[in-house]
């Protein structure tokens, strides 16, 4: 009896009709969604997808001397791969990526966990740390040009007290990239901290309380509760950070222009040089395609890896 009732409750109206109703509703809502999205889709199409297609086309269009079109092929890619500056830019970009992403995220997590309790002092400290985020990168770079000056700069002034002085941070090919990495960490850590703080709000305090009762120390709780539950947040920050590695360029242009001796030349600056200083749009388009493809696959790969074993709270 009870079983029969339950069956009736599950079956409800005849299944065919239900499916039909769902279909119509789905159709109507898809229609509505399409028209609601149409204006943005149109703009996206015009200003994002068309340029992407054009970049792809340009990458495979070959030009002879004087910019005359001479056919399609992979000649631009061949010239790109034969250019030592491209490989230098690629390896610089890898060093820059490794040097900025992990440290700035680690710093962001550390600061966020330290400042997560809403006390007045913490609120003040958070503001201080977020401050670099609101400054435009160009302004930051201009400031750092003075901070990093040998002899008179703020950094050198303090280092001199430790007996290290006269370092020409931006003028030495061995240190210039690291100076730029330092600036990027300073600029971005606060931004990522905001996301981590938001992520921390989503972790139920009961979990920590229960663990505390079980005798877990602060470090164990951080490792076993906070970090695993922050995974979705961290995955998101990781993607943002990687996009920043490829798209932020203002500081390089302001501080070094890619020098000395190409030591701070990263891909986007290389693309700019190829397109506008050397008038070689084919090679620039090929480099663009390569760097965007690398960025896309890295982002997808990192999201996939971090999603595995992710804990979502309901």
């Amino acid at each position: 009896m009870a079983q029969a009732l339950a069956d009736a409750a599950i079956v409800g109206p005849r299944p065919e009709r239900l499916i039909e109703a769902r279909r119509t509703r789905g159709f109507v809502s898809a229609h509505a969604a399409f028209w609601l999205l149409a204006p943005s889709l149109f703009l996206l199409f015009l200003f994002t997808y068309v340029p992407i297609l054009e970049a792809l086309m340009q990458a495979v269009s070959l030009e002879g001397f004087g910019g005359k079109f001479s056919g399609y092929g992979f000649g631009n890619f061949q010239r790109l791969f034969a250019d030592a500056s491209f490989w230098k830019a690629l390896s610089n970009n890898l060093v820059y990526g490794l040097g900025t992403v992990a440290p700035s995220i680690a710093l962001a997590v550390l600061i966020a966990v330290a400042l997560q309790d809403a006390t007045r002092l913490n609120a003040f400290l958070r503001t201080v740390i977020v401050f670099p985020v609101v400054l435009p990168l160009v302004a930051v770079a201009t400031l750092f040009a003075f901070v990093l000056m040998p002899g008179v700069g703020l950094l050198d002034y303090h280092l001199a007290k430790l007996g290290i002085s006269g370092t020409n941070w931006l003028g030495n090919p061995d240190t210039a990239l690291y100076a730029i990495i330092g600036l990027s960490i300073w600029k971005n850590a606060g931004y990522y901290m905001l996301f981590v703080l938001a992520g921390l709000q989503g972790i139920a305090p009961e979990l920590h309380e229960a663990a505390k009762l079980d005798g877990a120390g602060a470090f164990t709780r951080f490792l076993r509760i906070t970090l695993p539950l922050l995974k979705p947040t961290l995955a998101f920050i990781l993607v943002i950070a990687m996009i920043n590695v490829v798209t932020q360029i203002d500081h390089v242009i302001v501080l070094t222009g890619g020098g000395p001796s190409d030591s701070t030349n990263i891909l986007l600056n290389y693309i700019f040089q190829a397109a506008h200083q050397q008038g070689d749009s084919g090679r620039a388009a090929a480099a663009t395609v390569i760097s965007v493809a690398a960025l896309l696959s890295l982002s997808v790969a990192s999201l996939k890896t971090l999603e595995r074993g992710m804990h979502y709270e309901s």
Binding site: A145, F146, M149, P150, G151, V152, G166, N168, L170, G171, N172, L255, T256, G259, P260
Partner: peptide, 19 residues
């Protein structure tokens, strides 16, 4: 003359500062 690449703003500043 100092070693390494001297950025133009750094050069100007050193000149203004007597370095």
């Amino acid at each position: 003359m100092p070693e390494g690449t001297i950025q133009t703003p750094a050069m100007n500043n050193a000149f203004f500062g007597g370095q």
